[in-house]
């Protein structure tokens, strides 16, 4: 039996209302300040450092993003850490709060499908992330222009804009995770805890666990132990497993996009490097090609998570 009418009816009002809610909420303001302050601190120290050391770097703008100096990590690694937190903050009570406020049945009694409500909420979260990220990007580029006085090249702008889009997808993964938990759990506290738990697992515990899992699956070769090296299979498995974490994917994409001289993300044999000018930057297209699988992986994760969320939301009883 087919239902009549467009599933997108009512998408615009839901999107606008949720966006307004996000942008005016105290929670969002706290998260924004957190990102902004840490970001500015990281970039400011990077600028001071770059100003005194490098004069001939062709990618000065990109250095702003990636330069790290103790004790502050680089701006991108800060982002990689904070973006999931912001995304979870935006999404963890998206659906279950409608139940706890008892507004769900009233809203769904209006002539809209559930699709519009869910898609509207997801897009509003993504829109909020996009607005904050673009603002942050402009701020950094502006700071760079003012304090360094070197105009960015076309390629630098292109690379950093691609980085912006990828960061948005990275945030989208965590937003989708948070909204999924908000559908699965009726209590907002439970869904927030689960989302943060998963984030901690994938960000902090997963990199520690992966080597042990690899050891368990592929027992080390006696010859390799004697030589004190890891076997090829082990390294490959380790890399595959660690790529299940969106953080690893994001890290690899950042590496290729913001360090133009990156040529490979895995093992490289000396034979493959024959004739290569080590340290010479790759063109933008080549860098993008290098991490295309990672980018696709992030987008696929967003779509998969959203699909699971969609199905479980459609099957849910509305009676609160």
């Amino acid at each position: 039996m087919r239902r009549k009418g467009s599933p997108w009816t009512g998408l615009a009002p839901v999107f606008l209302k949720e966006l307004a809610d996000h942008l005016s909420s105290a929670r969002m303001r706290v998260l924004e300040w957190l990102v902004l302050l840490t970001g500015i601190a990281a970039v400011y120290t990077a600028i001071r450092e770059i100003g005194s050391v490098t004069a001939e770097d062709p990618f000065l703008l990109l250095r702003l993003f990636t330069h790290a100096r103790d004790p502050l990590p680089s701006f991108v690694s800060l982002l990689g850490f904070l973006i999931p937190l912001v995304a979870i903050g935006l999404g963890f009570d998206a659906v279950n709060s409608e139940f706890s406020r008892r507004t769900m049945s009233r809203v769904l009694a209006q002539p809209i499908y559930r699709d519009a409500l869910l898609v509207g909420k997801f897009l509003a979260g993504l829109g909020t992330l996009a607005i904050s990220l673009v603002a942050l990007w402009l701020l950094i580029v502006g700071l760079g222009l003012v304090l360094l006085g070197v105009p960015p090249s076309g390629e630098e702008v292109l690379r950093s804009l691609t980085f912006l889009v990828v960061t948005l997808f990275y945030g989208g993964v965590w937003l989708a995770v948070a909204i999924l938990f908000s559908v699965l759990f009726r209590s907002t506290a439970t869904s927030a805890l689960c989302a943060i738990g998963l984030w901690l697992l994938l960000t902090i515990l997963w990199p520690i666990l992966v080597p042990f899992i690899v050891q368990a699956i592929i027992p080390p070769d006696p010859a390799a132990i004697i030589l004190g090296v890891t076997s090829l299979e082990q390294i490959e498995l380790q890399q595959t497993l660690s790529r299940f974490s969106p953080n690893t994917l994001f890290g690899e994409i950042v590496l290729a996009l913001l360090h133009p001289s990156t040529r490979a993300l895995g093992l490289v044999f000396p034979s493959q490097l024959q004739g290569a000018l080590l340290g010479a930057p790759l063109p933008f297209g080549e860098s993008l090609l290098l991490v295309w699988p990672q980018i696709t992986g992030l987008i696929a994760a967003v779509i998969l998570l959203f699909a699971i969320t969609y199905v479980s939301f459609q099957r849910q009883e509305i009676r609160a």
Binding site: M1, R3, K4, G5, R106, A109, Q110, P111, I112, Y113
Partner: peptide, 12 residues
């Protein structure tokens, strides 16, 4: 089949 038309006409 046609929830949108129904919900447009019902107040709940």
């Amino acid at each position: 089949r046609d929830p949108l038309e129904v919900k447009r006409r019902i107040g709940y």
